[in-house]
Design a protein around this nucleic acid. Structure first.
Lengths: 147, 147
DNA sequence: TATTGTTATACTCTATAACTATA
DNA sequence: TATAGTTATAGAGTATAACAATA
């Protein structure tokens, strides 16, 4: 940082968007690094976790959960499917939809990656109390809710 | 939301990155809407505010403040410069660098946009106490700091 | 040598319209 | 007619290497 303290600008200090962007950029780069050994991006990782926790999810449901447009989810599932991590089964009751499921390989990778991500967040936020971490999580959920 | 409560997944609940991404997507879309009448994007707006508060900033310093790579700032300043909102003056002491300054028109637009953004955040977060808002802002700054 | 601004480039993420097949 | 998945496409945002001018 070559810039002096004067540069911390009052108008931006209160601006949630500015704060949020900087936090997001940091976390994103950090998470990408953590997930690289598993050949996962944040979006492919998130999809894995959500399918693991909610088997037989449709792509539309998953896109909704992930805040991703449905067309953009296709490439994500394509990638996971080609790697044999996710299976696209047809839904029995609605033959338009898929019922997404993890393969055994997908479950293993998901859990290994989750361990790494958890260790990583512990390293970053380990010094905070559990209450602080819950407060941060709640604050972010609140923002997501209101927008 | 067509998905049931079961889909809220334990592994993701604690995951700051997931929370942060959803909050960021919401705020970003919201801010874009607020700034559209001024023909500003979040990045061009942020540049305006920071130059307004810190005249004679160089592009390298501004890029640092904004968490943007220097090559990516060029187009941002180009756009503001073409619209006559920002002047690229040569720095007297270092002829490699610019000393960025807002024009009168740039200052006016910056202040009008800031009013709109402030009103918008008040609308979103007005029901929170000032202490809550400071806590959110501090939490985000903490995340940005640690990454 | 190092830094400022720049060009070129590539990759990711995001967003919209329109198609198909089922419902 | 409506929905699920898909294709195509366009636009932002982000990241890296390399160059000219200046320090």
């Amino acid at each position: 940082m070559t810039t002096d303290a004067k540069a911390t600008d009052a108008a931006l200090q209160g601006l949630i968007g500015y704060r949020l962007r900087r936090a997001w950029i940091g976390i994103r780069a950090d998470l990408a690094e953590t997930l690289k050994p598993f050949d996962l991006r944040m979006l492919t990782y998130t999809a894995l976790v959500l399918i693991d926790g909610n088997p037989r999810l449709s792509q539309a449901q998953l896109a909704d959960l992930m805040d991703v447009e449905r067309p953009n989810l296709v490439a994500i599932i394509d990638e996971l499917s080609k790697r044999g991590l996710v299976h696209r089964r047809r839904d029995v009751n609605d033959r338009r939809a898929y019922a997404l499921e993890l393969s055994a390989k997908g479950q293993t990778l998901c859990h290994e990656a989750t361990d790494a991500v958890q260790r990583h967040e512990d390293r970053l936020f380990g010094s905070l109390t559990a209450a602080d971490r819950r407060a941060i999580s709640a604050a972010l959920a609140l923002i997501a809710e209101r927008t």
